[in-house]
């Protein structure tokens, strides 16, 4: 239990996916101008991340590894993620139209989100077992959401700041993210306390 908690904590805070691993920077910069869309995007990412982790883990261990097809890992994972996103979109439109209204437009963007492919590859690279992979992907999604919401909160206020023109929008977002990342560095070493 304690181990699972530290896995979650490492993925969400200590090695925050966006601010330390730089996975999912594109949506982090692109959709974090307002809190509402940022929250919806984070929800969609968390959802797809967990489902993609489950499927890719099973496919790698029960299909690719069994038949010595590990070299197909990259193409198969990205195809699985792409088709999963399509399936989720269809199911959501059919069974949860209200959820679709909120998350729908972000789903296609998620296929090429490096955070999703990143989490599935890390699950395999670090040889996580099934439960650890599940908790790790939950943590990664939560960490993505955390970074998105903090960032959106700051950027809503940045609109009222009189910035020099060359620094407006993306450059200042990167600088703010740099300061946030510095703050997250402060958690380094806390995982030793958890053990």
């Amino acid at each position: 239990m304690k181990y699972m908690f530290s896995v979650f904590f490492v993925a969400a805070v200590l090695n925050n996916f966006v601010l330390t691993n730089f996975l999912g920077i594109c949506p982090f910069l692109g959709v974090s101008r307002r809190k509402g869309p940022a929250l919806a995007m984070s929800g969609a990412v968390l959802f797809v991340m967990v489902i993609a982790s489950i499927f890719t883990w099973l496919i790698y261990h029960y299909l690719l590894q069994k038949y010595d097809l590990e070299f197909l890992m990259i193409p198969s994972f990205i195809l699985v993620i792409g088709s999963l996103v399509q399936l989720i979109e269809i199911f959501m439109r059919r069974f949860a139209p209200r959820m679709y209204d909120v998350f729908g437009i972000y789903l296609p963007l998620i296929t090429t989100n490096c955070a999703i492919l990143g989490v599935t590859l890390i699950n395999i690279n670090r040889a996580f077992n099934f439960h650890t992979a599940l908790v790790y992907s939950l943590g990664a999604g939560a960490g993505f959401g955390l970074a998105m919401i903090i960032m959106a909160g700051i950027r809503e206020h940045l609109e009222y700041v009189d910035l020099p023109r060359p620094l407006q929008d993306i450059p200042i977002a990167l600088l703010v993210a740099g300061l946030l990342s510095m703050a997250f560095q402060g958690f380094a070493g806390t995982v030793a306390l958890l053990k």
Partner: peptide, 25 residues
């Protein structure tokens, strides 16, 4: 050390991008 850890990446890319926009303007 700041420059080689993750915050340094974000800060230096942000400044580089700002510089690039300045040159373009």
């Amino acid at each position: 050390v700041l420059m080689i850890i993750p915050p340094g990446a974000l800060l230096s890319l942000g400044l580089l991008l700002g510089l690039m926009n300045l040159i373009r303007d």
